[in-house]
Design a protein around this nucleic acid. Structure first.
Length: 423
RNA sequence: GGAGAGAUGGCAGAGUGGUUGAAUGCGGCGGUCUUGAAAACCGUUGACCGUUCGCGCGGUCCGGGGGUUCGAAUCCCUCUCUCUCCGCCA
């Protein structure tokens, strides 16, 4: 959520910058500032009324103490009048406040100046590419056939027991999952991240805090009986740890890592995108989250990018980095880089990580602040990134490393898997 | 699931209708003292909104929401959470 003060002072700039996100904010912002004006004028009147009424109440107390009953009665009547007026003003104010809040929740974060214009993912800017694309012999199989061949992931069984998008991992497939999770966690810990195991269900306030609600309501599984949401990413519980807190600047950067299952309804997805491991309703992900001061948050974003690149390097996967264009970047993000690995049998790039700086957008929603050097409280910046999401990593590992003898495990993983080939 | 108790400032802990944003202690910050430090002493110490160029001024906030009252941390309703006992249970 953008800060109302900023919009007030930089109306045109906000409208212009949101155009990069293909978001026409002009009307919305007029409505917003209008509601804001109503709110402020109502508050001014309300405050003045309350000030008088408060004073009166004190006097009434005094009158009663000193036995001046008549004066007390008189003041009491006057106060009753004021009270009615205050109630009315309060109503006005809270309605205008709701309008302001509602509109603010609909306005996306401002894109960073480096975000390229564009409508769709085809307009994303490839900023970096590394690794040789594997040149496989004929007879290469897509991962969903390899998983069958070696009986390491069973999609049909998942469909039977749960539904599409809920696979069973078995044997070496299950161990590979476990190995990747441990590998990613160990790497993060060695890079100064603190490990958390978060709850997998969160309340409504947390959903709003990180911005999944209200705009992505339909993407989360919702347990209506208890009004809890299954998390779509560990970002939600981990970032919400800091909801309504004031941090110390000297504690920055706060670096957290969490492995979790992630649950996504993926309503509206279809076709080759959902084949095999490409898109699941439940998957595993290790997520890194950082809280940082505004001055340093973009350095932190670079550091996180380097960290993720290094993971992919260790897994010996060819990858590229994309700077997301205005049309593809998420609602809450100011700047996002996607990491894609090349999956050799599908012959396509698969997104395995997304690392973003949300600046103060999430922080403002959840009141995550810090005390700066001058002792002033201000909004912190939040960042997060996948490090990494498992399914597509597994897809690429299987496809790229298939040989006549079986699927070879990259060196860095062998200590974790305990085997060097799946056959 | 049943019965009971509770939720106050960074922490601990008073406060049951009238200058209570809130005693007191600890912690934090500033100062005196000291070569330095500790101790001691003195002072200071919340967040948010509005208003102001600024000093400041006004308002709101004692778990969340609603109500009673001229006036509520204090009374009532409701929700959430915590604790104790019973039941169930990985």
């Amino acid at each position: 959520m953008l800060q109302i003060k900023y919009i007030r002072d930089n109306k045109q700039e906000v409208v212009d910058r949101l155009k990069i996100k293909n978001f026409d904010a002009a009307q919305l912002i007029d409505d917003l500032l209008n509601a804001d004006e109503i709110r402020r004028s109502a508050q001014k009147q309300l405050d003045d009324t309350l000030a008088v009424s408060k004073q009166l109440s004190k006097e009434i107390g005094q009158f009663f103490k000193t036995g001046q009953k008549d004066k007390a009665e008189e003041a009491r009547n006057k106060s009753t009048e004021l009270k009615a007026k205050a109630k009315d003003l309060e109503q006005q104010m809270s309605e205008a406040e709701k309008d302001v809040e509602k509109i603010l929740l609909e306005i996306p974060n401002l894109p960073h100046p480096s975000v390229p214009t564009g409508k769709a993912d085809t307009d994303n800017e490839i900023t970096y590419e590394e690794g040789e694309l594997p040149n496989l012999v004929d007879g290469k199989l897509p991962h969903w056939e390899l998983t069958d061949k070696y009986q390491i992931i069973d999609f049909d069984l998942g469909s039977k027991v749960s539904g599409a998008g809920f696979p069973f991992y078995r044997g070496k497939g299950a161990r590979l999952q476990r190995a990747l999770i441990n590998f990613f966690l160990d790497e993060a810990i060695n890079n100064g991240y603190l490990e958390y195991q978060p709850p997998l269900m969160v309340n409504e306030a947390s959903g709003y805090g990180t911005g999944q609600l209200p705009d992505k309501e339909g993407q989360m599984y919702h347990a209506t009986e208890d009004n809890l949401y299954l998390i779509p990413t560990a970002e939600v519980p981990i970032t919400n740890i800091y909801r309504n807190t004031i941090q110390k600047e000297e504690d920055f950067p706060i670096k957290n890592v969490a492995y979790s299952n992630c649950f996504r309804r993926e309503a509206g997805s279809y076709g080759k995108d959902v084949r095999g491991l490409n898109r699941l309703h439940q998957f595993d992900k290790v997520e890194i989250v950082q809280i940082q001061s505004p001055e340093k948050s973009y350095d932190t974003l670079e550091e996180m990018k380097d960290y993720i690149a290094n993971l992919l390097r260790k897994l010996e996967l060819p990858f590229r980095i994309l700077r997301l264009c205005g049309g593809d970047i998420s609602f809450a993000s100011a700047l996002t880089f996607d990491f894609e690995v090349y999956s050799a049998a599908q012959e396509r790039w698969l997104e395995v990580s997304s690392v973003s700086n949300f600046e103060s957008f999430q922080a403002n929603r959840m009141m995550l602040r810090y005390r700066d050097k001058d002792g002033k409280t201000q909004l912190a910046h939040t960042l997060n990134g996948s490090a990494l999401a498992l399914p597509r990593i597994v897809a690429a590992l299987l496809e790229n490393n298939q040989t006549a003898e079986g699927i070879k495990i990259p060196k860095a993983l062998i200590p974790y898997t305990g085997f060097d080939i799946i056959n």
